[in-house]
Amino acid sequence: MPRRMEALREISQAGLPFAVPEPLTPVTRFGERTAVAVSWIDGEAQPEGQGDPDQIGKLLRAVREVTVTPRLRQLLNAPREKGWAEVLAEEVIPRLPDRWRDECRTRLEAARDLEAVPDALVHGDLCGANVHWSRDGQLIGVLDWDQAHLFDPAIDAALMAWHGWDTIRKAVDPETYRRARIYDAPFDVGHLVGVLDGRPLANVEGYVRSIVGWLEKNA
């Protein structure tokens, strides 16, 4: 948590056109638990499937265009340097039911083999309750940067498909949309971020069960 709070301080000072929670206290330990107070962000989430493409496009551009300082690069995971796809290929694909293995391996290879783009700040959980809007649909702030990392900004575009893929198609350029769909295809971009943010897969079997549920639902 201390490292995540340092990253949050860096992000909150990046001049983003919306509010970002700021740490208000030092990180406190309670046995094996840690806690910290952060500033309050007003507003509320939009319902799933709703959203203004213009507002969503501005949000995605603002995050993508944050200057990655040397300090921010030191604090955040950079998946491209860590063999992220190999982790999934070795630990997850073999545990999938037979009917899904070949298809998911093909989809994962397509994501892995996307032409590289410069690393940018990626929020990593940019959907639902983590994005707060005013009652008239204006962006107020973005919460929960715990899964922030440095990678392809198309990841955040895929996460914002909470608002609907048709909305995302209108919010971003065609190439970002194409990449977002490819990252989402193997087993949902929300699961993918579980590897991209740098934290180890502590419960691989539970992770696989969740992926299988998503695959069955979207078959």
Rank of each mutant, 00 (worst) to 15 (best):
L59M: 06
L59T: 00
L60F: 06
R61S: 15
R61P: 10
V63D: 04
R64C: 00
R64K: 10
R64Y: 01
E65H: 03
V66T: 06
V66A: 02
V66Y: 02
V68Y: 07
V68N: 07
V68L: 05
R71H: 13
L72F: 10
L72K: 08
R73Y: 05
Q74N: 13
L75V: 02
L75N: 00
L75C: 00
N77W: 14
A78T: 12
P79W: 02
R80K: 13
K82V: 13
G83P: 05
E86S: 12
V87W: 09
V87E: 11
V87A: 15
V87D: 11
L88K: 03
L88N: 00
A89E: 15
A89Q: 11
E90P: 06
E91A: 13
E91W: 15
I93D: 04
I93R: 04
P94M: 01
P94E: 01
L96H: 07
L96E: 04
D98K: 15
D98R: 15
W100T: 10
W100C: 08
W100S: 09
R101Q: 13
R101V: 09
D102C: 11
C104M: 13
R105C: 09
R105P: 09
T106Q: 12
R107A: 05
E109P: 04
E109G: 06
E109H: 08
E109V: 10
R112V: 04
D113P: 08
L114H: 10
E115P: 13
A116F: 13
A116H: 14
A116M: 12
V117R: 14
V117H: 10
D119M: 06
D119Y: 07
D119F: 08
A120Y: 06
A120C: 11
V122F: 02
V122T: 00
V122Q: 00
H123A: 02
G124F: 02
L126R: 03
C127K: 13
C127H: 14
G128Y: 08
G128M: 02
A129W: 15
N130W: 09
V131A: 04
H132R: 14
H132F: 08
W133C: 11
W133R: 04
S134E: 14
S134K: 07
R135G: 14
R135F: 11
R135H: 12
D136P: 01
G137P: 04
Q138Y: 12
Q138C: 12
Q138L: 12
L139V: 02
I140N: 03
D144E: 00
D144V: 03
W145H: 03
Q147A: 12
Q147K: 11
A148M: 06
L150M: 00
F151K: 00
F151D: 14
A154K: 00
I155D: 10
I155T: 09
I155W: 04
D156L: 00
A158N: 14
A158E: 07
M160N: 01
A161W: 05
W162L: 05
W162G: 07
H163T: 03
G164M: 04
G164L: 05
G164C: 04
G164T: 08
G164V: 07
W165H: 07
D166R: 13
D166L: 05
T167I: 01
I168W: 04
I168T: 03
R169W: 09
K170A: 15
A171I: 04
A171M: 07
D173F: 03
P174T: 11
